[in-house]
Amino acid sequence: MDYFIQQLINGLTLGSIYGLIAIGYTMVYGIIGMINFAHGEIYMIGAFIAVIGFTLLEMAGLGFVPLALLVVLLASMAFTAAYGWTLERIAYRPLRGSFRLAALISAIGMSIFLQNYVQLLQGARVKPLQPVVTGGLTLLESEGFVVRLSYVQIFIIVLTLVLMVGFAAVIGRTALGRAQRACQQDRTMATLLGIDVDRTIAIPFVLGAALAAVAGVMVAMYYGVVDFFMGFIAGLKAFTAAVLGGIGSLPGAMLGGIVLGLVEAFWSGYFSVEYKDVAAFGILILVLLFRPTGLLGSPEVEKV
């Protein structure tokens, strides 16, 4: 039972991270119906900026942790958002009128490019990060097994919740969100009503990148290492989470992330760590087989 609770906590933490990345996929898919294959790389860039930021602040002697956290979070979000915007501008906007596979192949190219770009600039070696937030709460203790909830985990889960609520409010209640939803439903009509479609399409890339950056900061703090290749598998899993929840749906992305995180944590806890990725992709295939619209998605109707 103790072990179960521990895995539950780990799964929730992991799931929060997946969920934040998945939002980027689901938003972009919702508005232009395309998989932003390079989104995993954006998350990786966010994590790199986080490690650089923490190291820089440590060198500067900024010891007050909450302030350092805030600074790194904001900086990472801002710079990563710039990457998201540029990505859309260079790799996707010129191809908007082209056929579907062209955009996907361009995205794959961008993903390879960004990976090697970071590798060239920062080196291929794994970058460690000293623990920023240490300590935690001991929830249960019995027969030598301790259930721990570390402060980093609390931070991750709480920040994810806050961001999700804030994000849902932005999409649901502001003019920006209305423009998003309008473009999602009918781009031509939105243009006729005076919505700047180019800008509206760029926004999910920017916001998605900012959320991926938060996920990157969290991962850097949680695992304490980053490398240039980390975006590939994480991106694939976050995409799985988005599909699991129903692509195009924001709560779905979050739910999918949590479910996937839990599956992965329990799978590694009870079966085998080596095959946890196989479990995640197996879920992707199963979901697409039996419920292609995902848990919360609406069915897609193709008109002839």
Binding site: I233, L236, E274, D277, F281, I285, L289, P292
Partner: peptide, 23 residues
């Protein structure tokens, strides 16, 4: 199982399959 899927879903699933084989 996966060929019912549309273009880019299929792409990602095949990608996942490639990873499964490698793992």
């Amino acid at each position: 199982p996966v060929l019912r899927l549309r273009g880019d879903y299929l792409a990602i699933v095949t990608l996942g399959f490639g990873e499964i084989i490698r793992i």
